[in-house]
Design a protein around this nucleic acid. Structure first.
Length: 705
RNA sequence: GCGCCAGUAGCUCAGGGGAUAGAGCAACGGCCUUCUAAGCCGUGGGUCGCAGGUUCAAUUCCUGCCUGGCGCGCCA
């Protein structure tokens, strides 16, 4: 319809010798009327009369709109064409519009308006959970967004591959494995119930994180004492060579003595820990040797500050399990080494616990309506990533900096493409100083694989907004690699889900788990069903409660624009009133209820639209309802174009509102025969369209509530 | 310091170069002998963060500023 009207307007403009501007059409915003308005007549007037003074322009616009309205009236395609305040309003005939739309809906079912697949393939990567970590409420936003987007793409005719990329390896996994081996040998205290294992693993990870943080803090505290002590000793001894003598009984200590402190702080964690462990425990001996040594230059040297520091050190060492806590990171390093050697015991533990995480993920995806065509794993692109990094070293793109392999992106862009040197993309580290490949290296490999193995034309990453900078770096690195599709990569970012207490973080254990939210939602939904519809049988009640609970969570995630934070407020999510899934689901249940009641009264429910339908005058609410129905395919298209599921979430609610209006104002079953048939057709069309809209969002609509 | 995102009713948020800026929640007042009251109707509540600019037209676009969040070399 849009295009047809636009063409008519273009033709009119051409015949009248007016400038060929692109007509902008808007819906007519008045209740009870349906049609399109040509809204940029002012722009036309300005182009037709470029020199007209400002105050005359309005008059020109009005004259032009009247001329165009007259021409459009002649076409006879509209009920009425009006020129008002510089707009040209073209009103559709509500009856034929209703007939047309309901016929399309009833013929097409929930696929009505769906487009044929055409054009290239797009891959949408979403979810990307880390194994061995808790699946929390923040992850849900990603899953809902990605899954809805994939469905809207497909509905709009885009050939779409849904992909997931599991973080099944990396430092978080090593931390978990370390803790599992150390404190849960043979996993014998793990829960038997599969549903509980994900949570248990999440706790293990959080605990490992806490313990490693404790080590880090201890290390920092001790080092803060050792640094001044070291300086005192060094200054007190007039000859550095003699310092070496003092330290020389330990190679580690000699090492620290030779190095300046700054250099030492840049050495590997492993080396630092060994030295500091050693040094701290030997500090009193060192101090003693220094004091009693004949190399001290001044007889009356003030050793008091050194004694105080040593005393503090001894306090720390004495009060905690010093060596054990300090050397935890060394155990972690040992885990990584064993991983690199593919130690069978470790691999076995990894496989087993990884599966527990996956069991959890699949259960949750199933509930949220997410499905994947291709699943990638970090563990499978690790080697390829390192390989690419080596190639990039040959290409002088990757350089070395304190042992790590990095890309100085701005510098390389400047050299390769002669871009002005800026400080925009900064530096990306691909391989850590200890040789471990980082996410950047793996992502380069993955990006290549996506385009080369799957023949896609566009690659979308649904990833949180906090990684925006990283994705800019990633795409620029692909560009530096000479990877032409770098421009076809798109980071679809979404804002955080915040808890009232702040940012969600599975590292600090500051999380609300998916299962906890869902259980609470289901419980509350069940209470409401019991209260509102006690006559329903128990299984049906449980089904309704599930649909409502899951729908509420999904809708709660999608009703807010992706670039806005969601403050996760339990009470708000659990409130089933207002702009929520249950409201929309309730509208569906009522539509079904009308159909049920009609059937029980022996009324035949039409399943096709006949030419004789919709010849009685429609009520304004009915016209508005039909107008809402007609918009559905365009809305889904808009979701796909803008990559914003919120448009559809809003639409589903608006359609439910329009139906509720209709429901209250237009009785169906008691209407006269001709009107009865029209309304039954409308109810059916609404139910189908609501099902379709909710289905794309991932929400189920029950027949009873 | 630099970059990205946000600022619209008391609260949570839609919308977006054009006609009178909309919902939900909360508050108040109505509607169940008629298809499910998880609903409907009504009332009150707005300098669309501030200041400039572009335009026939700016809450929407541009610039600057203010406030808040996130990010900025070895986590992902």
């Amino acid at each position: 319809m849009d295009e047809k009207l636009k063409n008519s307007i273009r033709e009119i403009l051409r015949q009248a010798g007016l400038p060929g501007i692109d007509p902008v059409l808007r819906e007519i915003p008045f209740k009870g009327q349906i049609g399109l308005a040509f809204s940029n007549v002012f722009q036309l007037a300005r182009e037709a009369y470029p020199d007209a003074p400002k105050k005359e322009l309005k008059q020109h616009a009005e004259e032009l709109s009247e001329q165009i309205a007259a021409k459009l009236t002649e076409l006879g395609e509209f009920d009425k064409v009006e020129a008002v305040k510089g707009y040209v309003n073209c009103f559709f005939n509500p009856d034929s519009f209703a007939r047309d739309i309901t016929a399309r809906i009833l013929d097409g079912g929930t696929d009505w308006g769906r487009r044929e697949m055409s054009g290239g393939k797009v891959m949408v990567e979403y979810s990307q959970p880390n194994t061995h970590k808790a699946f929390h409420i923040g992850h849900v936003r990603n899953v809902c967004t990605g899954a809805a987007l994939v469905r809207c793409f497909r509905y709009s005719g885009r050939n779409t591959l849904a992909a997931n990329y599991y973080g099944d390896i990396g430092s978080h996994v090593f931390k978990s494995l370390w803790h599992l081996e150390k404190f849960h040998p043979d996993l014998k205290d793990a829960p038997d119930e599969p549903k509980e294992r994900g949570r248990w693993l999440g706790n293990v990870y959080a605990k490992a994180q806490v313990e490693l943080d404790e080590s880090k803090n201890l290390l920092d505290n001790v080092w803060d004492l050792l640094k001044p002590l070291y300086r005192i000793l060094k200054n007190a001894l007039y000859d550095q060579k003699l310092t070496f003598g003092l330290f020389s009984y330990s190679p580690d200590l000699l090492d620290i003595a030779k190095n300046e402190i700054d250099l030492f702080e840049n050495t590997s964690t492993e080396h630092q820990i060994r030295c500091i462990d050693h040094l701290a425990r030997h500090a009193p001996v060192l101090l003693d040797r220094a004091i009693n040594s004949d190399v001290v230059p001044y007889e009356n040297h003030n050793w008091e500050p050194a004694r105080v520091l040593t005393k503090k050190l001894l306090d720390i060492i004495g009060s905690v399990d010093f060596h054990q806590i300090l050397t935890r990171p060394l155990e972690l390093i040992a885990i990584a080494d064993r991983w690199n050697l593919r130690d069978p015991d470790l691999i076995n533990l990894w496989e087993k616990t990884k599966k527990w995480s996956f069991d959890d993920f699949y259960r949750i995806y199933d509930e949220l309506g997410a499905a994947f065509d291709k699943e990638f794993y970090e563990s499978e692109v690790e080697e390829e990533g390192l390989h690419i990094v080596n190639e990039l070293v040959q290409m002088d793109i990757v350089t070395e900096s304190s042992g790590a392999k990095i890309v100085e992106i701005d510098q390389r862009l400047h050299e390769k493409f002669d871009f002005p040197l800026k400080d925009k993309y900064r530096v990306a580290v691909l391989v850590r100083a200890d040789g471990a490949s980082l996410y950047g290296a793996k992502d380069l490999a993955l990006a290549k694989r996506k385009f080369e193995d799957f023949g896609i034309d566009e690659s979308i990453y649904v990833v949180g907004n906090e990684q925006k900078f990283y994705f800019q770096q990633l795409f620029q690195m692909l560009r530096l690699m000479g990877f032409p599709q770098w421009e076809k990569c798109y980071h679809l970012s979404y804002e955080l889900v915040m808890l009232p207490s702040g940012k969600i973080s599975s590292r600090s254990g500051q999380v609300i788990l998916y299962d906890d939210v869902m259980n609470e939602l289901k419980g509350r939904a069940l209470d409401v069903v019991r209260e509102k519809n006690p006559s329903l049988d128990e299984n049906a009640k449980l089904d309704v409660a599930d649909s409502v609970a899951i729908g509420s969570l999904i809708y709660g995630m999608l009703r807010v624009d992706t670039n806005k934070k969601i403050e996760f407020d339990f009470d708000e999510v659990l409130d089933f009133n207002g702009r929520s899934a249950p409201y929309i689901q309730y509208a569906c249940a009522r539509a079904s209820s009308i159909a049920r009641k009609a059937a029980s009264e022996g009324i035949v429910i039409p399943d096709r639209v006949a030419d004789s339908d919709f010849h009685a005058d429609l009520q304004p609410v009915e016209i508005d309802l039909v107008g809402m129905l007609g918009k559905f395919p365009d809305i889904v298209r808009k979701v796909a174009d803008d990559k914003k599921p919120i448009h559809l979430a809003t639409y589903a609610y608006d359609l439910a509102v329009a139906f509720s209006d209709f429901y209250h104002q237009c009785p169906v079953l008691t209407a006269e025969p001709g009107i009865l048939r029209n309304r039954l057709l409308l109810v059916r069309a609404v139910r189908i369209t609501l099902d379709a809209a909710l289905g794309l969002l991932g929400i189920k609509a029950p027949d009873v509530m």
